[in-house]
Design a protein around this nucleic acid. Structure first.
Lengths: 148, 148
DNA sequence: TCTGGGATTGCGAACGGTTTTCAGTATGAT
DNA sequence: ATCATACTGAAAACCGTTCGCAATCCCAGA
């Protein structure tokens, strides 16, 4: 069966090898923001003869082809998500690591305005919010402070 | 002569060694966002017997003491600036690497509101805008696309 | 002012994520 | 089916950063 990403890759004229097919499948099925090691872990479950090097190479390939997007969440490793048309950002739960996506047109507009006032045209941007659940915070549950 | 950061360090009760004094001076005089290597480069010019390891250690020390702040601009290395009371963000000129600081109370408020709507209390956040000068963009000068 | 001992330093080795090299393998245009 | 080409696996190289260890420094107390 052809995964969504695989179709996208063929559309872009990429050579479809077995490992690319598997990685595409893994990424199509993912609804989180896996890092390379995690993608590899999942890929190996489908076909054990996929090396981590190939995963790295394929992620870069897919990124360059704009099929996926790299997300830098400041934890020292690259995470990925499927490329989407609309801009969105991430709220990271520092307690659990859960990542919540959100979009805000007003925020986009404001950002655009700020850049313009500074004499710049935006070519990229990123916003991350680190937070803790309101109710937990109220409970006064201790937050083992990571460096955000 | 005692640099501004050196005074701050003594206030915090840190043991003032020769190399810490030099690094404090370098940071006090910096008005940009140097990475560790750059700080080392400048420190060595004042006293050649400072190792890069010590710079790494001192930067972390000063960061923990909230004397300086780490800035992750997504270029794979840590950059630093003096700690300030007010939150601000960075606009990075992708053409030149120049970093422009800006603050926006409205933006802060909006961010706060978004987090609250998602049920979170903010413990940290970061916003970076990558852009090119408006006039350059208008001229149609080619932008050698880095991965932002 | 001199001293003792814990903190700090320099060096090089180790580390974790990522990229590259290279020889062997698979792909898909013919 | 064939063949040039692109791709792959394994291991080494890389790069920013941290760590282990012996030597050194700082400074409170004498």
């Amino acid at each position: 069966m052809t995964s969504r990403l695989e179709a996208l890759c063929m559309e872009k004229g990429l050579k479809m090898t077995g490992q690319r097919r598997v990685i595409s499948q893994v990424l199509s099925e993912a609804d989180d923001h896996p890092d390379v090691e995690e993608v590899h872990r999942r890929a190996v479950q489908i076909d054990p003869r996929i090396s981590i090097a190939t995963v790295y190479r394929t992620m870069r390939l897919l990124e360059d082809a704009q099929v996926i997007e790299r997300v830098d969440l400041g934890d020292g490793r690259a995470r990925y998500e499927e490329a989407t048309a609309d801009h969105h950002h991430h709220l990271i739960d520092t307690r659990t690591g859960r990542i919540i996506e959100f979009a805000s047109p007003e925020l986009e507009a404001m950002k655009e305005r700020i850049a313009h006032e500074l004499g710049y045209k935006i070519v990229g941007h990123r916003l991350e919010i680190y937070g803790v659940p309101l109710d937990d915070a109220a409970d006064g549950i201790r937050d083992e402070e990571e460096r955000p």
